[in-house]
Structure formats: structure tokens, C-alpha cells
Write a protein that binds this DNA or RNA. Structure first.
Length: 432
DNA sequence: TCTGGGGTCCTAGGACCC
DNA sequence: TCTGGGGTCCTAGGACCC
């Protein structure tokens, strides 16, 4: 039996933990750059506000209904997420952190100690609410895909828990689920299924496997079909405890951002890319990884009436895998120079690091350019840098190439709440 | 004026190898 | 005149997820 625990309207719920006045009010949280709606309270959903809707388009509606608006505050959400996951770990020997707001629990080995699955689900909800203040829903079933489906149905119940442990329950749940609501059926596949006369999950399960394989993206669709029939096909990736974070081993690490306004100045763009590669290198070191492939990307306005290809990329190979900011910085700026077209305005830039391998076991490059003593000095420098920045705040010591702290490319973030749990200056002050 | 960011997995096609 | 089969690796692009 798997359980899927999903935080309700997670970012909105995080804001509510520290601002209880928001309970019962319509609330939305915006994406980076205050671009789109990415989290909505139930009251906001009831107003017809859609996920991913551009903020500027719905601004009048938000004002008309007194909707409370927040810029995203990942310091807060990330910290509360870790706290939720810590509570969940008390309920199962193995947990797979699937995203910032959901985890799978592996209950196969669990002795039920006189409790039913539904009772365990209720305990989980109560514990998370009590210890962190976040409401969650629990879905339980034999496969991850069915647990996801159960979780969706749980959101519509008052008890917040749905267990699918009999063939009849599973069948009823499949009948109650439209194809577009199945985990793994997205915007493109749903219309394809509907056109073939398949409207519900139950109808999909009744189709022959060969048909599914042919029309539903090959093996991916085939796995999904089997999972819905109760045969577990998706791999179980338990999350390391000391890892403290997301999933097993990454294949890539990225940092990309939209700018507050279009930029064409080469210096400004260099500073942006330098900042992004600095962040990405920090992420690599935190996860004890090194990269030997670096992609730089520049994006032009994809909504422009004449827009052609809007993302341009340069891929650069590093002679040996590294997580040294200085080395990655030099290569990234070389990539940027290859891409830059004078006079072209860019609205977005970023870097992606891939070809990842565990740090500390670099393949030395063929021509002996890797001097072990130099590598050791680099390593010590990075450790010192991370140590200072952890203690005194991000960017306290940084490369000059990243420019001033108040960057001209910085995005909008007009409605950010304090980092209540991770920043001394943002702590509440109690006056007696 | 204003439209997010960070991931995963799979497939097809080309280059190249023996 | 005739022009194989099996494999790897890489890249680009598609589809999906939260």
C-alpha cells in the first residue's frame, strides 16, 4: 500500500500559518516576477481564478473581490516543506519526497497495529496540522498512480482521506475520474483520448494494452495503464534523510529567471548569467555533485507577434567535472558571448548544469591540466565561501562579475511576506 | 507595461563504430 | 554492378509533473 500526502493549496497555506487573518479570505500567490497565479485558496478558486493565469489579466478581478495577493516566498515555503516531510517520516519507514508539497509513503512493511489504513491517514492529517499548521489530504492505494487518484478524490471529502483497497472501490474511483484528471494525462493526450471516445479512467482501463501503447506515448502510457489496473510499475525512490531535500540523484541543476524588463546591455546580461551560475554552483556543492556540461540560455519575448524561436542555447563541455564557481563562471560567460546578438532584447536568461557525477572523484583531463594542488585550493576556497555565505547571508562574499546587489535585471516581487522562519531580521517581535 | 521555474522520461534521427 | 546489421552516443524536441 502506498500513501500520497499532498498539502492543500500549499503556498497559500504557508502564508496563512503566520497570518491567520487570511483564513476564510480569497488568497493567491504569484510566480517569480509576479507573473502568474501559482497557488489559490479555495475561496479564490470559487471566484473562477485559474492556475497559471497571468496576474496582469486578472488584476481588476482580484481588486474587485479584495483578493489577498502575495509574491512567492520560497525561503518560507521550502522551510515549512521540510518540516512537513519530517512529520511524515514518523509514519513510514520510507518516504519519497516527490515535490515541495507532496510525498509518497511506502506502507508495505508497516504493521498496522490494530489501525485501519483510514485511521492512519487521519492520524497523518492531524499530526501535520498540529505540528506545522498545514492542512493535507491523504490518498492510499496499491500503486502510486492509484494513490494519486485517491488523493484527488480525498480533496472533495470532509475527512480528507480516501483509501482504495477493494476492487469495487477502485472501479468506482476510476469511473468518477475524467481522463484529464489522471496523473500523467496532460493537455495533449486528454483530447486525443476523448476523440477516441475514452472519457473516464474506467474506460481507459477497459481499452486493450496494445491500443494504449500505440496511442498514449509508448511505454509511458503502457505503464500508466498498468498502474491504474493495480500493477505497480513506477520505481520507488526513497529520499535520503541527510539529503533533507528532494528525490534521489539529480540529472541536472538549473537556475533561470525572467527579467523585470527586457535587457540588451552585454554587461547587465553578463552579471545576470554570473549570478545564475553562482546559484547553480552552490546547489551542486550542497548536493556534493560536479558537472561536466554547461548550457547557457537566453530567451527573447515569446509572446511578441513576430516571435520565432524564443530560446537560444549554447552547450559547453568542461574538460573535467567541477563545482568550482570561478571555473564555471568563465565557461558560462564564454557561452554567453557566443549567443549574444547586438541590439537584441532578451527577457530571460539562465544556466543548466548536467552530466552530473559525485564530487570528489573527477575524471582527470587527458592533458594533465588538472593540477591536484590547484584542485585542493579551489575546493578550500569554495568551502570557505559557502561557510561565510551560510553564516552571514547569501551573496555576502561573491564574484565581482555578478555586479551590484540591486540588479537592473531583477524581477518584480511587490507583495513578498517576511521569511518568518529562516531570517533573524524577519522574526516576529513581541513587545511587552 | 505586465505571461514562472525546475525537473523527469521518452523518442526520433543523425553520426559514427565494427 | 552490387551497397548489411547491430550497436552506441548525442541532440532536439515532445509530453508530462508540481
Amino acid at each position: 500500500m502506498y500513501a500520497l500526502v499532498d498539502c492543500n493549496n500549499f503556498y497559500v497555506s504557508c502564508e496563512r500559518v503566520f497570518q491567520p487573518r487570511l483564513l476564510g479570505m480569497p488568497v493567491v500567490v504569484l510566480s517569480n516576477n509576479d507573473g502568474c497565479l501559482i497557488s489559490r485558496s479555495d475561496e479564490a478558486k470559487a471566484l473562477g481564478l485559474k492556475m497559471g493565469e497571468p496576474y496582469f489579466k486578472v488584476k481588476p478581478l482580484l481588486e474587485q473581490h479584495g483578493v489577498q495577493v502575495f509574491s512567492s516566498n520560497y525561503a518560507l515555503y521550502g522551510d515549512l516543506s521540510r518540516r512537513v516531510m519530517r512529520v511524515l517520516a514518523q509514519f513510514a519507514p520510507e518516504v519519497e519526497v516527490y515535490s515541495i508539497d507532496e510525498s509518497f509513503l511506502n506502507l508495505h512493511e508497516l504493521r498496522y497495529c490494530n489501525q485501519t489504513a483510514a485511521e492512519i491517514g487521519a492520524d497523518i492529517r492531524e499530526a501535520v496540522k498540529l505540528q506545522v499548521g498545514i492542512p493535507v489530504c491523504v490518498g492510499m492505494a496499491a500503486t502510486k498512480t492509484l494513490a494519486k487518484l485517491a488523493n484527488r478524490l480525498a480533496r472533495k471529502t470532509t475527512c480528507g482521506v480516501v483509501v482504495l483497497d477493494s476492487a469495487e472501490d477502485v472501479h468506482a474511483a476510476l469511473q468518477a475520474t475524467a481522463v484529464q484528471d489522471i496523473w500523467g494525462i496532460g493537455r495533449r493526450l486528454a483530447p486525443k483520448l476523448q476523440a477516441a471516445g475514452v472519457q473516464t479512467a474506467a474506460e481507459l482501463v477497459a481499452m486493450p494494452e496494445s491500443w494504449v501503447r500505440r496511442h498514449l506515448g509508448g511505454v509511458v502510457g503502457q505503464r500508466l495503464w498498468r498502474e491504474l489496473r493495480g500493477e505497480a510499475c513506477l520505481t520507488w525512490h526513497p529520499t535520503d534523510e541527510e539529503d533533507g531535500g528532494i528525490a534521489p540523484r539529480r540529472h541536472s541543476v538549473a537556475c533561470t529567471r525572467s527579467f523585470g524588463r527586457p535587457q540588451q546591455d552585454a554587461t547587465v546580461l553578463s552579471e545576470a548569467v554570473a549570478t545564475f551560475i553562482t546559484r547553480a554552483a552552490e546547489k551542486l556543492r550542497r548536493q556534493q555533485l560536479s558537472a561536466h556540461l554547461l548550457t547557457v540560455l537566453l530567451g527573447t519575448d515569446r509572446f511578441a507577434p513576430t516571435a520565432g524561436a524564443s530560446t537560444h542555447t549554447a552547450v559547453l563541455h568542461l574538460p573535467s567535472a567541477t563545482h568550482d564557481t570561478g571555473e564555471l563562471l568563465r565557461v558560462a560567460l564564454r557561452g554567453l558571448r557566443q549567443l549574444l546578438r547586438p541590439g537584441q532584447a532578451y527577457v530571460r536568461a539562465g544556466v543548466v548544469l548536467s552530466g552530473l557525477e559525485p564530487a570528489g572523484h573527477p575524471q582527470l583531463d587527458l592533458f594533465g591540466a588538472t593540477d591536484p594542488a590547484r584542485l585542493q585550493r579551489q575546493e578550500q576556497l569554495m568551502q570557505a565561501l559557502d561557510c561565510v555565505n551560510r553564516r552571514f547571508g547569501r551573496g555576502m562574499v561573491r564574484y565581482a562579475a555578478t555586479g551590484q546587489r540591486s540588479a537592473p535585471w531583477a524581477g518584480r516581487s511587490a507583495f513578498r511576506s517576511p521569511a518568518f522562519t529562516t531570517c533573524w531580521d524577519d522574526l516576529w517581535q513581541v513587545k511587552c
